[in-house]
Design a protein around this nucleic acid. Structure first.
Length: 574
RNA sequence: GGGCCCGUAGCCUAGUGGAUAGGGCAUCUGCCUUCUAAGCAGAGGGUCGCCGGUUCGAAUCCGGCCGGGCCCGCCA
């Protein structure tokens, strides 16, 4: 269809004596709301401004001037729009050829070629296991990384573990007091959950024994001073937590190229702090804390170093970001972090700008909404969370049940693999189909289903297509002809397939994975309608059969490509 | 008090200046001796939070209000 748009644009450019250029016309072209109106519409509103005429008049005048070339089957002025009909066989031929020829590359672009970008996401705290909020963050991080990569960028996926600070000390304190030297092995528990239990325990105990809070701060002091016993305990508990995270990431399909630990960067900010003081941006306040003065920048001031000289979170980011750009020679750095940190990142980036780092403008916060439960906000301190491991297991179990209903004889290994693929697809698609900046509500009882606009629905559609292709066996895919894919079901599907690269492009430009989800849903719906209405393998004639198989193959290819960007496995059998 | 974000049918959601507001869930009606019914076809359900303004044209832009979320110097 891209070719068809160009064809229309060429015809229009000529008819308009180049008053609008081809590229401008392509940008203006839209798809009419109802297929019977046409395949593409040229809105005459812009032209109305230029020519000082009524748009409806222009569309009629244009229609009279244009002589239709091959490939354009019809043209129809409709009020302010001039609608075009593509020659149906050419739509079929061009679309299928392009998809089949490009295969896994179909939908990839090159506008990010030569760019190196780092995507930091997940950011777990080492005092407790991952929860639902992390899963959304991970889904967005993985998808956006894939989308960058498909635009030709070199992507480095990074996880920053917040393994330093008062929160860890709380878990450590509870363990020290009540742990009796237990280990995850002795407790037979996943190590990050083991650590998290002590965090919850601390928060329960501190209600009755407020002195624990002081003890936790003392522990942080000792940690900062390098107290051996404290450091050893910290090392032990942090390594348990990280070990647990890695298990969850592996299960979830999340792979990182780089692991950063706050404990390794928080004390490397001396140079940048000094620079800030020299530039007069960072000033000691009356209590002795170092504060970045940002009020004259329309932001609130931000403390960058405590009065006792110890670090806070931003101290780490100051050092780490500089390291990222210099060591990895990045063109751009993206932080996938919830919108509760919007102000924080504006402050951080403003500080870099005021310090004169030229990469400051290449920092971007991909801000996303929160995940809420029917009972309200997730609160890990109160244990009011949906645990990541639990929800993954729950969805995989649900998938197992569904598979067993349909397939009694499946072997255990295959069952486990499919359950995992389907369960994860349900979670990931659910997290990604809504615009990133919006909060989402997660009702564990009904939020994630396998029907309707879901990951499993897309997988199911793909499996249906693959099943046909498997039964069809080896067949030559046609390269020309395609006079038999001209019905409304085939044409709708073809147009959606042809539009897929535009959807990927839009999702890249707008940093919005949900656009790809929408595209997948539309393609799946169109395919299922086609599937219901037309037999492929038992088509009336060999010619029709071959053409329909080609269409099925193209559909499967596009679904696979799209699912891959969303980090969802395309499985051949459900 | 200030800043940012959100408000579309019982619920979830797409659409951010253009044609009849597009889907899904739930409800109701049909369709499995025919390529996977995790599907398909159809029905009902909308003052696009409210009020004003800009525009030939507003869910979309601007202003005000109402409701919700997040944030506002040594918490991650």
């Amino acid at each position: 269809m891209a070719e068809f748009k160009e064809l229309i644009a060429e015809v229009l450019e000529q008819a308009l004596d180049s008053k609008l250029k081809k590229d401008e016309i392509i940008e203006l072209l839209e798809v009419p709301p109802i297929p019977k109106m046409g395949d593409y519409a040229f809105p005459c509103f812009k032209l109305a401004e230029i020519l000082g005429k009524k748009p409806a008049k222009i569309s009629f005048e244009l229609a009279e001037k244009i002589f239709l070339p091959d490939g354009i089957e019809g043209m129809n002025p409709n009020g302010p729009y001039l609608n075009f009909f593509a020659a149906k066989d050419i739509v079929a031929r061009d679309t299928i050829n392009k998809v089949i020829k490009n295969g896994n590359e179909f939908g990839r672009h090159d506008f990010g070629k030569g760019q190196k970008i780092m995507v930091e996401y997940s950011a777990p705290n080492s005092n407790k296991p991952l929860h639902l909020g992390h899963l959304r963050n991970n889904c967005i991080g993985m998808a956006i990384s894939n989308i960058f990569e498909s635009a030709g960028m070199k992507v480095i996926k990074a996880s920053l573990v917040n393994d330093r600070g008062i929160h860890i000390c709380k878990s450590m304190l509870a363990y020290k007091l009540f742990g009796n030297n237990a280990t995850p092995e002795s407790a037979k528990e996943k190590p990050d959950h083991f650590v998290g239990d002590y965090y919850v325990m601390y928060n329960q105990m501190v209600k009755e024994t407020p002195d624990l809070e002081k003890q936790a701060y003392d522990m942080l002091q000792k940690w900062e001073k390098g107290d051996k016993e404290t450091k050893n305990l910290w090392k032990k508990m942090t390594s348990w937590a990280v070990k647990g995270f890695k298990e969850t990431y592996t299960e979830f399909g999340s792979i990182f190229d780089e692991w950063f630990f706050e404990s390794q960067y928080y004390n490397k900010a001396k140079q940048i702090l000094k620079l800030g003081e020299e530039k007069g941006l960072f000033k000691k306040n009356s209590d002795g804390a170092l504060v970045a003065e940002l009020e004259n920048q329309g932001l609130s001031n931000k403390t960058v170093l405590r009065s006792d000289g110890t670090s806070i979170y931003i101290t780490n980011d100051l050092a780490l970001t500089k390291h990222k750009f210099e060591h990895f020679k990045l063109n751009e750095s993206v932080w996938v972090v919830g919108n509760e940190q919007d102000l924080y990142f504006r402050q951080l980036f403003k500080i870099f700008q005021l310090l004169g780092f030229k990469w400051a403008k290449n920092c971007m916060h991909l801000s996303h909404g929160m995940v809420n439960l029917p009972s309200g906000k997730l609160k890990s301190r109160e244990g009011k969370v949906v645990d990541a491991d639990d929800i993954i297991k729950e969805l995989e179990d649900l998938a197992t049940e569904e598979i067993k209903k349909r397939n009694k004889k499946i072997n255990e290994k295959e069952l486990a693999a499919r359950s995992r693929a389907i369960g994860l697809a349900a979670i990931k698609f659910h997290m990604l189909k809504v615009a990133v900046h919006k909060d989402i509500m997660f009702d564990p009882k009904k939020s994630i289903s396998f029907e309707g606009e879901t990951g499993p629905y897309i997988q199911y559609t793909y499996a249906r297509a693959k099943s046909i292709l498997a039964k069809a066996g080896k067949m030559k895919i046609k390269k020309s002809g395609f006079e038999r894919l001209i019905g409304p079901e085939e044409q709708k599907l073809l147009k959606l397939l042809a539009n897929y690269p535009d959807a990927v492009k839009k999702s890249f430009k707008q940093l919005s994975p949900h656009i790809i989800c929408q595209s997948m849903i539309e393609i799946a719906e169109a395919f299922n309608t086609f599937y219901q209405k037309h037999k492929v393998l038992k088509a009336g004639s060999e010619e029709i059969k071959i053409e329909r198989i080609s269409l099925v193959q193209a559909t499967a290819q596009v679904l696979k490509n799209g699912l891959e960007l969303l980090d969802i496995e395309a499985i051949e059998k459900m």
